[in-house]
Design a protein around this nucleic acid. Structure first.
Lengths: 136, 136
DNA sequence: ATTTTAATTCGTAATCATTCTTATTTAAAT
DNA sequence: ATTTAAATAAGAATGATTACGAATTAAAAT
């Protein structure tokens, strides 16, 4: 997913193209890893000194709703990254030291054979935490 | 795990038996589901009007470290439940409506055959979210 | 090109969960 | 009964997130 494709997708839904939104997308395209809201803010302030957290969060949530970003909770903070839909659905190994991730193609939902009759499954989370080769 | 067993386990490590700690454990034994810190506080205040969040969190984290409780993040809040070590290691289906859980014996780490050479695995999380039979 | 409209942003305050600090209290060992 | 380390109370502080009114701006309509 690149910046233009994402902005196209938003335009179709009636969302406008703004400099701030474009800049946020650029950051995610450049850094392919989980990033916290405050880091996005810091980076954007170099170009737009006045951006507020409101703008950051509003956009992060919008982009997540539109499935352009995906979110996870790390150390009490929400983190976001570009949803790599090139790979299709997948999970992550997340380094607890540097935050870098490695995609995991294996999805437990394909292997599970547990009786969940009557349960309406909406979502699932599978993440492996540890040290990546560089940090261990 | 019952209250006495848990308190025994703590005593062996040199931790004291306090009314507040005992009461916290009772709540978890009675309600076998994920509970947020503020709900613990509310319930305990009926007996100890002065308890502070400090006491709640200190104990929740202590109990989690001692593997008496287990924790997960739900809706931006940490939630805790009694670690059901009778079942051994397992995961959960968590109802997004009422918070009730169903144990899942299947563990993806037993089925995964992904190349993670060089990665030092410390932990993992597998949870399924949705509506339980009562809520769907 | 101008106007209109709704979306978006800014600036700041408010909220909410969690953590910290210090003085005081308590369990349990001597 | 005394001592000592652990635990608690009370409230302030922090940090992430959310909320809100006013001002701005992108895009559509005229």
């Amino acid at each position: 997913m690149n910046v233009e494709t994402a902005l196209e997708k938003l335009k179709e839904k009636g969302y406008k193209r703004t400099k701030q939104r474009e800049r946020i997308l650029e950051i995610f395209v450049k850094q392919d890893q989980y990033i916290a809201a405050k880091e996005i803010l810091k980076e954007i302030q170099e170009d737009f000194p006045g951006v507020s957290y409101d703008t950051i969060y509003r956009n992060l949530y919008l982009l997540t709703d539109e499935e352009i970003l995906e979110a996870t909770e790390l150390g009490g903070e929400k983190h976001f990254r570009l949803g790599c839909d090139t790979h299709g659905h997948h999970h992550h190994f997340i380094c607890t030291e540097c935050g870098k991730t490695k995609s995991i193609e294996f999805c437990p939902m394909n292997s599970i054979n547990e009786n969940l009759n009557g349960y309406d499954i909406e979502n699932h989370k599978f993440e492996i935490y540890g040290k990546c080769p560089q940090c261990s």
